[in-house]
Amino acid sequence: MSVSGKHPHNPLHVVVLMGGWANEREVSLMSGAGVADALEMNGHRVTQIDMDRDVAAKIAAAKPDVVFNALHGVPGEDGSVQGMLDLMGIAYTHSGLATSVIAIDKQLTKQALTPHGIPMPGGRIVPCEELYERDPLPRPYVLKPVNEGSSVGVAIVTEDSNVGNPISRDAKGPWQEFDELLAEPFIKGRELTTAVIDGASGPRALGVTELIVDNGFYDYENKYTEGRTQHVCPAQIPPEIAALCEDYAVRAHKILGCHGTSRTDFRWDEELGEEGLFVLETNTQPGMTPLSLVPEQARACDIGYAELVELIVMEALRVHEGKVNQAEKADG
């Protein structure tokens, strides 16, 4: 379906795809509800679809101009939904199939970014059975699922962790939920994040936020429980560190081939200066809830929530039109 006849100020029919069955279902429902309200405020017609196994038939029946993908985690963020929508010839927000496959996999992301000079922690994928025999890295180290978002299933193993040494099979942790985990050295210091948004002149960083957690670290519960985490926006950090965060985030966005918006997360050991800044991951479908970081950084740049949603939708239409034009050239 060509979208060349659609003007940005003409009403569109937008399907907001949300929910699903991933660990981040509730966050996705919150993101989707906010996006749907903003689209209606902007004058568009909205159909909300809670992802299930019949999702392709429901989208086909709705016949939208564009799908706003408000899903988080698998299968909405790992290339599965993107491939389905590509086959259906429907425009959709955020990144495409190949980018989604790579970016949701933390190990593939390292392989894509580190050759370009973007520093990321080392580490390796470890079968959980091995954890019960020996530590994969010197403590402290971090264990995380390879392809989950929102810090789902992240554990920090320290010398005084109440999990045993080696880790006990009975100890509560992600090793009870997954067959294998990514083990990385723990980087002490501060938690920073930078959002990137596409515009007419290409991707640009929206700034840097520091996340200060009252208790523990920036895990799923602290992310989405109001009052648990303080967002300092803009982060009170040296200008050269802020500039480096923005540079790495924009470069990661470009290298991975992200579209619409992305968010890159960092740890910074301030004792090491610029050498202490490490990229942890790039999220291709950041949350759009009231507590989410991308809308917050956008507000700091005088971009309201409804305008942010509109920009993401317009980028989706632009990308889709480029795909249509390429296909026509190939056929022609």
Rank of each mutant, 00 (worst) to 15 (best):
G202N: 03
D214W: 03
P238E: 12
N215P: 02
T194P: 00
K254V: 13
G202F: 14
Y218T: 13
L137F: 08
Q230V: 15
S150H: 09
L143K: 05
P136A: 07
I241C: 04
A235S: 14
E210K: 05
Y218S: 07
H253I: 09
P174F: 04
V208S: 08
E191G: 02
T209H: 01
G173A: 09
E240N: 11
D160S: 15
E240T: 14
G260P: 06
I241L: 00
A195Y: 00
G199K: 00
V157L: 15
P136R: 04
Q176L: 13
F186T: 10
D219T: 14
D247L: 12
P238M: 15
D214E: 15
L192H: 00
R190K: 11
V213A: 06
T193R: 06
S161L: 05
R251N: 12
G202R: 14
A242N: 14
L192R: 02
A195V: 09
K188D: 12
P166C: 03
R169D: 02
P185Y: 03
L211T: 02
R139S: 04
E210Q: 12
P239G: 05
E191R: 07
N215Q: 15
A242C: 03
I167D: 10
D214T: 05
N222V: 11
D198N: 08
V213R: 02
G207P: 07
E184G: 03
P203D: 06
I212T: 15
K144A: 09
F178A: 10
E191F: 10
V208G: 00
A171V: 07
F178G: 00
T194W: 10
A252V: 02
G202W: 08
E226R: 15
K223E: 13
Q176E: 12
G260Y: 09
A155N: 01
C233E: 03
E180K: 08
